[in-house]
Amino acid sequence: MKIILALILGTLFGFVLQRVGATDSRKIWGMLTLRDLHLAKAILFAIGVSSIVLFAGMSIGIIDAGHLSVKSSYNGVIVGGMLLGLGWAIAGYCPGTGVAAMGEGKPDAFVYVLGGLAGAFLYTLSYGAIADSWLFSPIGGGKVTLAATGEYSALIATPSAMLVALVLGGLFAAFAVLAPKKI
């Protein structure tokens, strides 16, 4: 069953990434040079709406909080994020959009994925040497969320996680609506 879901959900995600323009490196450069915020508005809106629906679904018990998977916070998240940002601006793709763009038959995306395999391999070989370094010192308690989920510890301890999610999600959605299409 999970295998079939993987095929359906993966196909859907690849399809959507193409249709939103995320597999078009020109759109990525447009966003990162702040000339064309179409994608930024879409991403902010998606985060806001999905967050509100997720927490609403969990609070009324139709979404299983056991399906959540919160990643750990540590120094390497910021350093790795910065490296990803550097490569993202250079290549015009992030991992998901690079894979999808390869499906569209773009030669540069194919080369990007080869580069990605090389970078991931280099990391696989390096991990043993850096595993005990400052890069993996936790930040803010490791696996934490802002709104309470019942599964992980929360930074904002209020009785209503739904309210926290509504405020955060509402802010993202409001930014999406108010941000100009071009600066």
């Binding site: 998240v77 490296l83 990803l84 490569g87 993202w88 990007y112 991931a120 280099l122 990391y123 991990y127």
Partner: peptide
Amino acid sequence: RAFIGGAIVLFGARLAGGCTSGHMM
């Protein structure tokens, strides 16, 4: 640029423990 960018992105994503999909979205 696509090759070098791809290598930097995936090295960074693995150090961070996720990428734009897993961490950001």
